[in-house]
Design a protein around this nucleic acid. Structure first.
Lengths: 152, 152
DNA sequence: CAATAACACTTCAAGCTTAAAAGTTCATGC
DNA sequence: GCATGAACTTTTAAGCTTGAAGTGTTATTG
């Protein structure tokens, strides 16, 4: 027999496996950032989002990108700001809005970090070649409800 | 061209996608447990590990299963104990060891929870049928460095 | 058998995270 | 214009999480 479990049970097991891999990878990266760069995963995540945006973004955009609460974004940005790596400025159009971006120092700091981070991921995922990556991408897209596409 | 990005970059993108799906699912489950069962994800995780074990286990075994620190296991078990769902007892062979398990009340409580949890996951992963689940399982196994096997 | 190391767990301080409440500012409808 | 509600951010309280230090127990080893 090839599928001794029902659909529901198999989906649960898949989720547990997904969670385990994610936790393991996160733990590894946390340790990596702590030992080699004396920083944390949340700070890295925020910096990555800001760097990727390329220009100052709203606090709410930031928390939506990272899938965390607004209050969370506030405190992490506070710390990055205290480190001199991020800066807030009020929006000119809308005085409710706080725009946040990386400072010069923040960009310099993050560049090294990003390269090292990508290299570390590549090591952790060394068993996945192009074919496997394509398969996983398609599965993930399906899970996220995106239509199948080509390239990347 | 079918793969415009290098291996390293594709692995990074895969990781980011994995992380996004995991966070989204966790956020959904957190809300689900909070609204319908007035409990939290960490409590559920601990209870699931204890229920699955079927008998009292060491605190250190628990934290290893969940991939969290020892101190973390301590506080979550403290709360479950305060709720009357978990109980510690000292090991007889080794007085350093604390064995923790679910109480009767804890098992009753968790049974409903587990069923609802599995149903919710099954809904979230509704786009994945047997074939897709098998593909994902193989990918995850590869990532975890396990040899390929048959059946679930 | 005594000193030392290894192990198991808890405690602690700091940081992370959430949900809810509070404080501003903007948009809408009357 | 002004009230009312919506949007944006921060603050707050509680809980979660980590890494390191602390406490007690067992194993090693000289």
């Amino acid at each position: 027999m090839n599928t001794p479990y029902g659909l529901s049970r198999r989906r649960l097991r898949t989720w547990i496996r997904l969670l385990r891999i994610t936790r393991r990878t996160e733990n590894h990266l946390r340790e990596f950032l702590r030992v080699n760069y004396d920083t944390t995963l949340p700070r890295f995540d925020v910096a990555a989002a800001l760097y990727r945006a390329g220009k100052p973004i709203k606090m709410s955009e930031l928390s939506q990108m990272l899938l965390v609460s607004n209050g969370n974004a506030t405190t992490v940005v506070d710390r990055l700001e205290k480190d001199g790596f991020a800066a807030r400025k009020p929006s000119e159009n809308d005085r409710r809005v706080a725009l946040v971006g990386l400072t010069e120092a923040g960009q310099e700091w993050f560049k090294d970090l990003a390269a090292a981070h990508e290299a570390e991921i590549s090591t952790l995922f060394a068993d996945l070649g192009h074919d496997n990556l394509t398969v996983i991408r398609d599965m993930m897209r399906r899970l996220e409800g995106e239509p199948d596409e080509q390239d990347v």
